[in-house]
Every structure is written in structure tokens, then in C-alpha cells.
Amino acid sequence: MELVAEQVVGLGGGRLLVGIDGLTAAGKTSFGHELAECVSRAGRPVLRATLDDFKKPWKDRHLYDRESGEGYYRNAYDYDLVKRLLLDPCKSQGEASCALCGIDPLTQRDHTSVVTPVAADAVLIVDGVFAFRPEIDAYWDLRIWLEVDTELSIARGAVRDVNWAGSGAEEIHRNRYLVAERIYLAEADPMPRMDLVIDNSEFARPRLISRRTA
């Protein structure tokens, strides 16, 4: 984690945007929190956000398919909202604040009016599936991919989501989320653009697989 933080800080001054992607349940959110702590200890102000907080509201779900794998990939996330509230303000030195959340995915409460100051040298760390889709790929100064096996992704996700999905959790992960990920990997082809690829099969022992240097 310290090695990754060093690479982030080594990108220089000014605002930096770091994207963390990987299969569902790869450990993106926890990794982002730990990376934020390391970057903060290195002396940089840090902001944390997750793309899950910029999904389209459930009240509009009748307008589009979000239940199939393809529907989830095409329709679940509101990329115009994440650009307008989060990525554009953090990328522009002329903006002093941003919103770190759109619609809370659990409570469905609207947080779009809640803003957070953005320092001139802030590091924004964002985790989420499909982080390197064409709609938002150009924003990132550093791209991180957490690598896990597909079956491990399904198993972790099923355990994580059993409270709301019940016995159908594994089926949802296999037939919706994994299908969506495969479409993403085939269409967006994000892997050649990764700056860091990290094997996160063991949460306590992440392993650097590849690192692209300038």
C-alpha cells in the first residue's frame, strides 16, 4: 500500500484523480480506504468516493432494464451525474468544492446538494466497477486494477450480499454482475491502460502483478 501511495504522490502537485476498478467484491472500497490513509500520511489532502453512490435512483428503474447483466452494465450508473458533481469539479482548478455522493444506493436519499471543499493539491480516490468506461476514462491520472478470480468474486459477493439477496445472491453475481463485467472487459478493454495491477486474492496479502512507469 505504501508503494502505491508513493506512486500517487510521485505524480506531482495539483489535483490528482485515482481510479480503482476490478471485479465485484475484489476489495475495491477497502483498498481505496487504506490507500487514502497512506496518501494522507504522506501529507496530501484526500477525498474518497465510490461510483455506487452515483447510480440511477430505484424510482426510475421501470424506465430501463437493470436486472440483466447487459442492463446493469448499460443502465445502472449515471455517468453524467458523476462527471457534473464529482469528476469535473475535482479536475478543474477553478472549482472549490464537489459532491461526493449523488443518490445513496441503500437509503435512496438525495445528497447532490451536500458539497465538500477541494484543496488545490487534493487527491481524489474513487472506487467502482466500470471505472474506466469511455464516459469517464479520460479523467484518471492513475488507474488501478484489483485482480481476483471470477469464482472468488462470485463467492465473496454472495457472502457479502446474502443479507439483502438471500439464497439468490450467488445467482445474481453469476448471471448479472459477472455478465456485466465481461461485457465491460470486451467493449472498454481497460486492461492495457492500467498503471498498476494488483492481485487481491488475499485481502491481507495483496501482490503487485504489473506496474507501468512513465
Rank of each mutant, 00 (worst) to 15 (best):
S97G: 00
S167H: 12
V159P: 04
D195A: 06
I183M: 11
R176L: 00
R193W: 12
V115M: 15
T112K: 14
V179W: 01
A158D: 05
G128Q: 03
D137Q: 10
I136L: 09
A131G: 05
A119V: 03
W140D: 13
G168V: 05
D137Y: 06
V115H: 14
P117Y: 05
L124C: 06
D110P: 11
E151N: 01
N163Q: 14
R174M: 04
T107Q: 02
D104E: 00
M191K: 15
E147T: 03
V118C: 04
G157M: 09
A165E: 09
I183D: 14
R176H: 03
E147G: 00
A188T: 13
L185A: 08
E187T: 00
W140Y: 08
A165Y: 11
R193E: 14
I103D: 04
A155K: 11
R156F: 03
A99T: 01
I154R: 11
A122V: 04
V123Y: 05
T107N: 13
T116A: 08
Y177K: 10
E181F: 13
E170C: 00
R174N: 06
Y184C: 00
D110K: 01
D104H: 07
V159Y: 06
R174G: 13
D137M: 10
I144N: 02
E181T: 08
E135C: 02
A180L: 03
W145S: 11
W164M: 14
V197F: 05
V159A: 14
P192L: 07
R133L: 05
A120K: 15
R174W: 03
A99L: 10
E171D: 13
